[in-house]
Amino acid sequence: MSAVPLQRVSYAEQPSVREYELKAVYLYNFLQFVQWPESRRTVSKDGAMVIGIVGESPFGEALADLQADVRRSGMKPVRIIQYGPYQDHMDFGECHLLFVSQTEKGNFRRIIARLKDSPVLTVADTENFISAGGMINLVQSGGKIRWTINRAASDRAGLRLSAQLLTIAVRIVEGP
């Protein structure tokens, strides 16, 4: 899957690719490496999974490109929902993955609380996300983008994270 966007990327070139193109791919990949509970396995008929972005999307065209690539190459389709800045009435229930933009830094807890441990993978690339109860936080490490994982959060949501995610993770936190 990553072969599509990464055709342009060679082994040593990861850091120079636009950050959010890469992160878009990561999000899509996360979908592959996480197991949702039975009730959320497939939402729509075409088996597409849903990525929601809350806050200001840093991805630009990357997600749309990703989506197109995915469609073209016949991979598992994905839908993107741009929620915009957080508002309390927002229902993220149809998302499998929710990316919380940096702009919503102050709403981390609220958003997490809003989700109420429903099986939505919460991903951000901002500090304190994990301590706010977020599940995955993308970080830079050794010139590569890795992440920190809050396992307690994912456990509460009933999400099973692949061991490989855990292996690659820079840090695994057990709470909150």
Partner: peptide
Amino acid sequence: RNCEASLAFRIPED
């Protein structure tokens, strides 16, 4: 299998 994530996430070290 164990290289899936590594390859998917373009992290060769793993």
